[in-house]
Simulated scan of single mutants.
Amino acid sequence: MYEYRALKAQVRELQRLLGKKTMERFSSKAANGTRSAATTAALKSIRRSGQR
């Protein structure tokens, strides 16, 4: 049972880090003015999912 909890915590941390890197990538593109409509929609979706 301990291994399951440790793995679950590790997955959660990796998802958090991946989300952070994704947001940084979208933010840097936005700063450069290269954000498309699809990117804007994806960014909004990511932001909504992070506000649980």
Rank of each mutant, 00 (worst) to 15 (best):
M1Y: 03
M1L: 08
E3K: 15
E3G: 05
E3T: 10
E3D: 13
Y4M: 10
Y4K: 12
Y4I: 09
R5D: 15
A6H: 05
A6M: 07
A6K: 14
A6W: 04
A6V: 11
K8L: 15
K8E: 14
K8W: 09
A9L: 03
A9E: 11
A9D: 07
A9I: 01
A9T: 07
Q10M: 03
Q10I: 02
Q10D: 09
V11N: 04
V11K: 06
R12I: 13
R12V: 14
R12K: 10
R12L: 09
R12S: 12
E13D: 12
L14H: 09
L14E: 13
L14G: 01
Q15H: 12
Q15T: 08
R16A: 14
L17C: 02
L17V: 11
L18C: 05
L18K: 13
L18I: 04
G19H: 04
G19W: 02
G19R: 05
K20A: 06
K20C: 05
K20R: 06
K20Y: 07
K21T: 04
K21G: 00
K21L: 10
T22K: 04
T22A: 10
T22N: 02
T22R: 04
M23I: 15
E24D: 15
E24R: 07
E24N: 09
E24P: 01
E24Q: 13
E24L: 07
R25A: 15
R25P: 02
R25M: 14
R25K: 14
R25D: 11
F26L: 15
F26V: 08
F26I: 08
F26Y: 15
S28I: 06
S28G: 03
S28M: 08
K29Y: 10
A30C: 03
A30Y: 02
A30Q: 11
A31Q: 06
A31S: 06
A31Y: 01
N32G: 06
N32Y: 08
G33Q: 04
T34S: 04
T34L: 02
T34W: 00
T34K: 00
T34H: 00
T34Y: 00
R35T: 12
S36W: 01
S36L: 04
S36K: 04
A38E: 13
A38D: 13
A38C: 06
A38I: 02
T39E: 08
T39V: 08
T39M: 11
T39R: 05
T40E: 03
T40P: 00
T40F: 00
A41Y: 02
A41E: 13
A41G: 01
A41N: 05
A41D: 07
A42I: 10
A42M: 15
L43M: 09
K44R: 12
K44G: 00
K44I: 01
K44M: 01
S45N: 15
I46P: 00
I46E: 09
I46F: 02
R47M: 09
R47A: 08
R47W: 04
R48W: 02
R48S: 09
R48N: 06
R48T: 12
S49M: 11
G50R: 15
G50L: 14
Q51P: 00
Q51F: 12
Q51E: 14
Q51H: 12
R52I: 13
R52K: 12
